[in-house]
Amino acid sequence: MLRHRLIGVVEGFYGRPWQHELRLSYAGFLQALGLNTYLYAPKGDPWLRKRWQEDWPAEEWHALAQLAAHYQQRGLFFGVGLSPFELYGRYGQGQRRQLRDKIRRLNELPASLLAILFDDMPGEQADLAERQAEIVADVLDWSDAGRLLVCPTYYSFDPVLERHFGRMPADYWPDLGRLLDPGVDIFWTGNRVCAEAITRDDLQRAAGALGRPVMLWDNYPVNDGALRSDHLYLAPLSQRAGVLDPSVVTGHLCNPMLQGRCSLPALLGLAGLYAEGAGPHPDLPEQLLGASLWRCLQRDAEEFRVAGLSGMSAQRRLALAGEYAGLPGPAAGEVVGWLRGDYAFDPACLTD
């Protein structure tokens, strides 16, 4: 059975979370770009990660349900990314019951996707693949979502993962690919956690290691790390080869910046990769952000990308903040906040 290719965003970053209004607005942004998917998986939602066993407070749950319904009404794919923290370290009857209850709660959402995320957790465990596959098999039995996605603990060839999360067990990737149901998508970020380029050879190597095509979790233009939080990435996504080959890629989700509206120019490149026909009009950022802001962003894009905050003098940052504060729209406010240091680095993000 041919499945839809999921192309869109994964809200999967650390640090300052997006506001509910911005998440709702992204449905229209995705449609304007010709994209089809939003995966809600912010690291800052404790009821998805460190406190996953607990239920959301009523207000937060209502907002999440409203978000899921909003995307369903727009005809877009919406999903939630659950990170049951270190569950694979001890998965007994009690933990299994807690996970079943959480999945049943998520079944109340009108969400067509569910992701189980084992990323950025300790992984030096001999039976890691077996325990994670056991968890995913249970989730498949309990979940009403039409499609399940999984992020491995080791989701890239990048050696930084073993430095932070322990040595990867032997044969982890082939074992995980063999043990997971064939219909489960497996996330991959490229040869690096934040890959500057992804080649066809990279994708073939990853698909070969896992024994199946990968779902790209593209960490561009995300800027939540110690180094990347110093910068804004406004250039359209580029240097992605081979992504159109369904034998190696089943979908492509970009992890945006903490500045959600300012991420739209980067997502124009994602839209262009998969567009049928002419693709999105190059003037779309101007339409979505406003003409005056877009002119300023084009002028300053290289400085924001290369010099970043640490490469600018305090006087320069202050002058730019004053200029952007005079521009209309919430996207200009994102730039002002970044220039003033409001998007502080979250030290929980270890893999810049």
Rank of each mutant, 00 (worst) to 15 (best):
M1F: 14
L2S: 09
V10R: 03
E21M: 13
G28L: 05
P42Q: 03
P42D: 02
P46F: 13
W47M: 15
W52S: 05
A58N: 03
W61F: 11
H62S: 15
A63K: 15
H70P: 12
Q72D: 07
G75I: 09
F77R: 03
P84H: 10
R90F: 11
R90N: 10
L99D: 13
R100F: 13
R100M: 11
I103A: 12
R104K: 12
R105Q: 15
P110D: 07
A111Q: 04
S112C: 08
L113M: 10
A115F: 06
P122D: 08
P122F: 04
Q125R: 14
A129E: 11
V139L: 06
G146V: 04
Y154H: 08
Y154F: 12
S156C: 08
L161E: 08
R163I: 11
R178S: 13
D181T: 01
G183Q: 07
G183C: 14
D185S: 05
F187G: 02
R192M: 13
C194G: 10
A195M: 08
Q204K: 14
A209H: 10
R212V: 00
P213M: 10
V214M: 09
N219L: 08
P221L: 09
N223R: 12
L227A: 10
Y233H: 10
L234Y: 04
L237F: 05
S238N: 07
R240W: 00
A241Y: 13
D245P: 06
S247D: 13
H252V: 02
C254N: 08
P256M: 05
Q259H: 12
A271Y: 02
L284Q: 07
Q287K: 15
L293C: 03
E303P: 03
R305V: 02
S313Q: 01
R317G: 09
A321V: 10
A321Y: 05
Y324I: 03
G326N: 09
G329H: 15
P330R: 07
E334S: 07
R340T: 06
A344M: 10
D352L: 05
